[in-house]
Simulated scan of single mutants.
Amino acid sequence: MKIGLDILGGDYAPKSTILGAIAAQKELSEDQRIVLFGNEQETKQLIAEAGGDPALFDYVHAPDTIGMGEHPTKAITQKPNSSITKGFEALKNKEIDSFASAGNTGAMLVGSMFSVKTIPGVMRPAIAAIVPKLKSGTGLLLDVGANADCKPEMLNQFAILGSLFSEYVYGVSNPKVGLLNIGEEEEKGNLLTTSTYPILKQNTKINFVGNAEGRDLFSDCADVYVCDGYTGNVVLKLAETFYAVTLKKGFKDDFFDRFNYERYGGSPILGVNAPVLIGHGISTPEAIKNMVLLSKDMVESGIIDKIKSAFN
């Protein structure tokens, strides 16, 4: 197994990404290798300085960086030697089995769709985020930013994508799907949700349990919550704030600790032809490590083949 990692992506790269890669490598088996995309000589030197063994990694020389503020499409096409562009080139050529980066989110989305491309039958890929449940376990929320405006058919596909990920990557049997809405009743909501409800209700590929309100998000109401990317991103940023507020207030609680993004590493782009993960821009070494390990889990689960089968 070859797990691709962008060494230059993120606000604290390359130090943070290198420390995370070293930590992740210690938890991999001998046949699982991390392939680092960045300045090869500099990366090897930094690994050695951090107390790691450069020989334990593979390298692809990619000295250029796509900045957080750069236009995604232009950067992908105009920077062929960037770490993200080289990463997707290797992923397309099957030289690596997955690719992860804490760099420019837009470039990761564009790179996914331009290189490995969308799985046939999938209208639009979605970004999924993990949400902690109050009692135990985690739920999945999608889309959280890839598609600000959605059609009912897209939310129906998000439900299938989220269900498959929840079942095969997180081991949830027959995951429950809820439609994020402003009320429990079937007729509640806006044009998008009222049009989506009957489609989800008729979908035999999912276990649809009805509408879910914002207050249900951290409960056992559902395992997968679907919404448009605009709504999902607002909810995600609000949830992330919970953890920041508890730290500022000096409040220690196990549930709120599970809002810490570091625990989950990255968010998968679901609906493309290979495992792709987007990390938080402020990713720490712990977050990078967990993003690499989630990449491994996605490859081992065969989730891409499961999605292809569902949409065929």
Rank of each mutant, 00 (worst) to 15 (best):
E213C: 10
K201M: 09
C227W: 03
R263C: 09
N207Q: 06
D228S: 04
M154D: 01
G189P: 10
K249L: 15
T231K: 00
I206E: 08
G271D: 02
L179A: 05
V226K: 00
F218K: 00
A274R: 09
N207W: 01
A239G: 06
K252E: 12
E213M: 10
V245H: 09
P268L: 13
G271L: 06
G189E: 06
Y197H: 11
R258H: 08
D223P: 00
V177W: 04
Y225G: 01
L277I: 15
G232R: 07
E240Q: 14
L200A: 04
K205F: 07
L192A: 03
K205V: 00
P198Y: 09
L191N: 07
E184C: 00
T194S: 09
I278R: 03
V177M: 05
H280V: 13
V177G: 02
Y261A: 14
S267G: 01
I182P: 02
L161W: 02
Y243K: 04
R215A: 14
V226D: 01
E213D: 09
V234I: 15
Y170I: 02
F255T: 04
G171I: 12
T246H: 07
S267H: 06
I278E: 01
N190V: 12
Y243C: 08
T194M: 12
F158N: 02
L236G: 03
N181Q: 04
D253P: 06
L200V: 04
P198Q: 07
K248E: 15
F242M: 08
I199M: 15
S166R: 03
I182K: 03
D257Q: 14
L200D: 01
G214I: 05
I182N: 09
G214A: 03
T193I: 13
A212H: 02
G178C: 04
F218G: 08
G171E: 11
R215S: 13
E240H: 06
E186Q: 13
V272I: 15
D254T: 15
V276M: 08
N156S: 14
A159G: 07
K237C: 02
N174A: 14
L236Q: 05
D254V: 14
I206P: 05
I199T: 02
N207A: 05
F255Y: 11
R263M: 15
V177T: 04
A239Q: 01
Y168R: 08
I199R: 10
G210K: 08
D216E: 03
T204P: 01
K176E: 05
K176L: 12
K205Q: 15
P275Q: 11
R258Y: 04
D228C: 09
L200I: 06
A222G: 03
H280N: 11
I269V: 15
P268K: 13
V224L: 10
G162T: 06
R215L: 12
D228W: 05
E186C: 09
I269T: 05
L236M: 11
L217E: 02
D257S: 14
V245D: 06
Y168C: 00
D220L: 03
V224P: 02
R258I: 08
V172P: 00
N260G: 11
L277M: 14
Q157F: 09
F165V: 07
N203L: 07
V245F: 14
K237P: 00
V245W: 12
